[in-house]
Amino acid sequence: GCFSYCPCISIIDQNHKCTYTAKDFAILADETRFTVEEVEALHVLFKRLSSSLIDDDSIHKEELQLALFQTPYGKNLFLDRVFDVFDQKRNGVIEFDEFVHALSVFHPYAPMDEKIDFAFKLYDLRQTGFIEPEEVKLMVVAILIEFDMNLPDDLLEAIVHKTIADADKDNDGKISREDWKAFVSRNPSLLINMTLPYLKDITSVLSSFVFKTEAK
């Protein structure tokens, strides 16, 4: 029913949509790095994203894809992983509480450990607890497509080999969570994509969006 679908203690309106209360926003603010005002601003963004293709209270994968890549079509390795890591309840959609929790990791003030852990989950494509050479290769191939580059297989293998060797402290041919933690702690710039500077300023970024939308 509605309540199993709806997070927190939100109210269901006549259209079977979640109406978040001030208390919901306060709880989410309490659980994350955001203030209540920032959670409210994120709700504006969430409403836009969750109604872009299907007008409900959840972000479907196609809606996330549309927002990130301006097209709902095609297959994207990263999109699949980002979506899965955001979808904590694993019910195939991103709900507002999941959205706020996941974005909190990308806050400039979020602890480094959270960012390290989140990145590991993303790159552990098959969720085996290790980042394996095959997974690194899949990610490199996906990025080469993005840059419209083609590398011969031996060069590709060399990049994969170097990547594993750089981080694989215990020499078992794959990157464990501990390997990863030690490696990115030495090379924090590798986590640059785990921080969204916008989140420090979310209320003004999104109020300018609301203003532009209303102006249209």
Binding site: L45, L68, L79, A142, S189, N193
Partner: peptide, 25 residues
């Protein structure tokens, strides 16, 4: 020299792996 490159450097700078677009409009 791409061989001297660590794949995670590429990934961290990749556009397809950047959530900033969520805030673009």
């Amino acid at each position: 020299k791409p061989v001297s490159m660590n794949a995670f450097e590429l990934i961290s700078r990749s556009q397809s792996f950047n959530l900033e677009n969520l805030f673009e409009k």
